[in-house]
């Protein structure tokens, strides 16, 4: 597993919700404000840091992002940008949601921003009824109220059901 990373950096172990362990270099972990705060307050003495809200698949993605950004922090911004867009390309909505939740929980601002942007791009052309389903929002408008709100912003609805 992560033993392929060969250097003298401190490492810590993260454990996903489904029990998989990930060995992470400290400088990579520092991309996460949550982990940074834990390290600062010396909670890191524990052998394994459990991340009960994040599954292994998502955690692997998150750590991939962190590693790229930690290693490249002083290098070219352009390279990182293209990494970011490639990173999220073709990712399905479920994975994006898990990613945005993980980024929020682990406090990785850059990842939160790009994942939120990607979700925004995905939903923006969907009718609001579908957006309701995606976010499990209960429609609490009466039909009359909904029609009134819609009427207030009629111009924004051109071309939408």
């Amino acid at each position: 597993m992560a033993s392929s990373i060969e250097n003298n950096n401190e490492k810590l172990t993260l454990k996903s919700s489904d029990g998989e362990e990930f060995l992470v270099e400290k400088h990579v972990a520092l991309q996460s404000t949550l982990l940074q705060n834990m390290l600062d307050s010396d909670c890191s003495s524990a052998d394994v840091i459990p991340l009960p809200k994040i599954d292994a698949r998502t955690l692997a993605l998150v750590l991939g992002y962190c590693k790229k950004h930690a290693d490249a922090s002083s290098s070219k911004q352009g390279e990182l940008n293209s990494f970011d867009s490639e990173f999220l390309k073709d990712m399905d909505m479920g994975a994006l949601f898990n990613l945005v939740l993980a980024a929020n929980f682990m406090e990785i601002k850059g990842l939160l921003d790009i994942a939120a942007q990607k979700i925004a791009d995905t939903i923006k052309d969907k009718p609001h009824q579908e957006v309701r389903e995606i976010f499990h929002v209960e429609n609490d408008y009466t039909p009359e109220e909904e029609a009134a709100v819609r009427e207030e912003n009629r111009w924004a609805f051109e071309g939408f059901p």
Binding site: K124, H128, V131, R132, F135, V137, E138, N139, D140, Y141, E146, V149, R150, E152, N153, A156, F157, F160
Partner: peptide
């Protein structure tokens, strides 16, 4: 898009 999504719910 935001204006349109005001229709999603009161929240």
């Amino acid at each position: 898009y935001l204006l349109r999504f005001r229709c999603v719910s009161k929240r």
